[in-house]
Amino acid sequence: MDESNSRSHTEEIPEFVGPYKIEGPLGVGGMGRVYSARHKVLNIPVAIKVFFRDVNEKPASAKRFIQEARLAASIEHINLVRVMECGNDQDDHPYYVMEKMSSSILLEMKKNGNYSEREAIDIGESVARGMSVAHHHSIIHRDLKPDNIMVSVDGLYKVGDLGLAKLQDIENTSPGLTMTKTGLGTPHFMSPEQALDAAHADARADIFSLGASLYFMVTGKKPFEDEGVQAIINENYEKGGPDPGGLNSDLSAGFCQLVKKCMAYKPEERYQTMENVHQELIDLRHRFHDSVKPIHFDTCFDLAGTKKEEIERLMEQHAKAASDKPKKEPVNKLYIVIIVALLILLLFLLKYIAL
């Protein structure tokens, strides 16, 4: 049994953590449990991550937990889950408080199925935008995956769970905190270089993980079939970045190419920055929008239950009707001048007669 899952059944749920009343469990991470909670005075809903009791005495784990809170709190962006507070509970166990999310991409897919290309582009834009800011602060996520892409109450997409994140210069600032030869992360969404040497993975590892997440969103499948880190690395080396178009024929060539480039085996063959990925997704969205044929508003009320082929025929019909519609002849400007002159003359005559 997974260690974190066994903890989820054995640890007692506290009634309060600091000034927050616990409402129930939300999930279990590598270093702590996440609860739904509410401030007992202000009545604000939050999520709280509390350090595992049975590993509280491990200095390296404790440092990593505090690092996670500090990293998340060091930047604030609309596409990053915000950390609001950090402290110790009544038993002196560290915890930190986050804004409460409504769901995650993974949970939404379990309920509603795969995302469309258009939806995946929107999500990818949000993730790339948030991670661009994180990378500018020298923060690398290292565990970007559908389960860590959150959906807020108002429908915004935000990157959460910086549990494996690191500062790029962490080897110099916190010796021993990062295990150099350990592939920390989730294998099916992890870049090859991170799997081989997690400490020296740079921002391009997150780009790989974003590509793998986009692949999963539109296909419902993990990008690699093999299990085990080395087998996945070998599959990626032999086949390169997988093509989601092989599982979803509705995807555009541009979107498939973006995913494949994000997941190139060699970091130098990927997009080099999240800004590059973000801009490419924006361009894809514009191309996607331009490819949609216009349709008359009145027709929308009659399309329920209509077959795809018939809808496409109607769209083409309305587009042709709009282009064939005769243009109105412009009003001759000379007529306007004559009419205005006559009105002025009439007013002058009326004034003269009145005198």
Rank of each mutant, 00 (worst) to 15 (best):
S6E: 13
R7Y: 15
K21A: 14
I22H: 15
M31R: 13
S36V: 12
L42S: 12
L42F: 14
D54M: 10
N56C: 04
E57M: 03
K58M: 04
A62F: 07
R64E: 06
I66P: 02
A69M: 06
A69G: 11
R70K: 13
I78W: 01
R82W: 00
C86E: 11
C86Q: 08
Y95N: 06
S102E: 10
E108C: 07
M109L: 11
N112S: 14
Y115Q: 07
A120E: 04
D122P: 00
D122W: 08
I123F: 11
S126L: 03
M131E: 06
M131L: 15
S132C: 01
A134P: 06
S138R: 11
L144T: 10
K145E: 09
M150S: 11
S152N: 06
G155E: 05
D161N: 13
D161P: 09
Q168I: 14
G176D: 06
L177N: 08
T180F: 03
H188Q: 09
H188F: 10
M190C: 06
S191E: 01
D197A: 10
D197W: 03
A198F: 05
A199M: 13
A199T: 12
D206Y: 00
F208Y: 15
G211Y: 02
V218N: 04
K222L: 15
P223H: 02
F224K: 05
E227G: 09
Q230M: 15
A231T: 07
N234S: 08
E235M: 06
K239T: 10
G241K: 01
S249M: 03
A253C: 05
G254K: 03
K260L: 04
Y265R: 02
E269C: 02
E275C: 03
E275R: 05
V277R: 02
H278P: 01
D283T: 11
V292A: 07
K293P: 04
F297C: 03
T299G: 00
F301C: 05
A304W: 13
G305C: 11
E310H: 04
L314I: 01
E316K: 06
H318P: 02
A319G: 07
A322H: 01
A322S: 01
K327A: 14
E329A: 15
P330L: 13
L334A: 14
I339D: 11
L343G: 13
I344E: 03
L346P: 04
L346D: 12
L350A: 13
K351F: 11
A354G: 05
A354I: 10
